Simulated assay, not measured.
Amino acid sequence: MNFLHAFMQKLTPETPPATPNQQQDAANGDSDWRLSGVMDHFAPLIELQQRRQLISVQLDGHPQTFQTLVLDINFSQNLLIIDELFPTQPRPAQGQVLHFNHQRHGQVLHFAGTLLNQQSIGGSPCYLVALPDTLAYRQRRRHPRLALEHRIVPVRLQSPNRAHWFARVINLSASGIRLQINGDKTGELNRGSRLPSIDLTLGNNLPFQCEGRVRSFRFLRRPSRQTEISVEFVGLTPEKYSLLSQYVDRLLAMAVAA
């Protein structure tokens, strides 16, 4: 058997070692393949940069919405370089989280990144932001709902008779809210009843206040006696509507990424 094994090895041609040029070509091919995958992953950002399209930005803890442009994308250092924000005040601080939002053809792109540094180009500031791990447009419902029953989001509101009620949020959208209140409140409610005041706090201590109209309600005996109320927001300003929409989109995008 040893003789046969040695004989077969002689008959099998040896593979010559790769030359330095062949090794370099293989390394370049592997690098090109990885770069192609990265560029496919960040295609939405590349398109925004090439078309010089404005993208909306919100800062943690600030209700105002800004706009900016994608100036460059540094894949090797995982950096997104954006233009100065408009309006220019206040300027974001290093370490602050920026939330980006862009819509096209009924789809929404939402992602967040930490501001790592600020530089200046031609006297104008630009910002270096960490690239996100996930990035994709998703189909947008007219008013997507954010489920919050597993989070404690307290709400203060006034009943149609202006009694003070305390509730918690079941779900939230840019057009309305579903609330849970302890006890049986059905005797004080009617479809179309006006709620003079609804107060809640969005993420990062952003206060939100508006009026509402009762769309539906029901009393539940189990697991505890409580009333669920579906409320339509009334008289939202464009600023408040935008704030709610971006808050809901942001948390929905985070849930998808998780």
Rank of each mutant, 00 (worst) to 15 (best):
D133V: 09
L251G: 00
A174Y: 04
V155E: 00
R250Y: 13
A43N: 05
C126W: 06
A147H: 10
L115F: 07
F7M: 12
A130W: 03
P144L: 04
A27H: 08
F42E: 05
L80H: 02
A136M: 07
M8Y: 13
A18T: 05
L69D: 05
I46W: 01
P87R: 04
E228L: 14
Q94A: 09
P132V: 10
Y247V: 02
R221W: 09
V57G: 09
A93P: 01
P63T: 06
Q209N: 13
P196H: 04
L98Q: 02
S31V: 03
G123Y: 11
A18E: 10
R142T: 15
M39Q: 12
N74C: 10
R162F: 13
C126P: 02
L59W: 07
Y137D: 07
N204L: 12
C210I: 03
V108Q: 06
A93K: 15
P207D: 05
I81F: 12
G235A: 04
S159T: 09
K185S: 07
P16S: 07
A112R: 11
G95D: 03
L146R: 01
H164C: 03
Q67H: 15
I170L: 14
G187E: 12
S76Q: 14
S245R: 10
R194E: 09
T201E: 15
Q53Y: 05
I73R: 00
L85P: 06
S173V: 12
L200M: 12
A147K: 09
S76L: 14
L220P: 01
